[in-house]
Amino acid sequence: MGKVVEIRWHGRGGQGAKTASLLLADVAFYTGKYIQGFPEYGPERMGAPMTAYNRISDERLTIHSNIYEPDYVVVTDDTLLTSVDVTAGLKEDGAIIINTTKSPEEIRPLLKGYKGKVCTVDAKTISIETLGRYFPNTPMLGAVVKVSQVMDEKEFLEHMEESFRHKFAKKPEVIEGNMKALKRAMQEVKEI
């Protein structure tokens, strides 16, 4: 059986972590994978912590439970680090990817002794400089693909461009910015 890559997203309601997980499922689907993308619905308040999940595999997926031992964790808001146990069950040979202006060295002490790879990306600055607004999910998507290598980078970018062309058919001017956001995040993500 092929390896299943499991990803857990931590975000705040309204920040687009659910959308990002669905986008990742989409692009992985286009590269021929079996995919699952699903949010864990809570009270659904703006700003409240929320969780979303991805499974990506070369084989058909039948399991229908949440993910307790993820390969990767993505945190779209670093203020969650003090309130949510983001590294719970995270595999040591995996990685955590955090949207923050801080460096991985500054973040590690907040992660309750997690020994695996710690990655950071300043999705806020990237988003504001490329899109003119704060949409952390596009840069975070680039960062997670870069770190996890869950699909070929070139293939990923080609499919994302196609998907943006479809999604923004009426706003083609934002496609370039979104592609830049993805690429910059892939270049700028730092790890220790």
Binding site: F29, F38, L61, H64
Partner: peptide, 12 residues
């Protein structure tokens, strides 16, 4: 079908 578990999960 199961609410949220399959109704809101995107799969192949």
């Amino acid at each position: 079908q199961d609410g949220f578990i399959t109704s809101h999960a995107v799969e192949n």
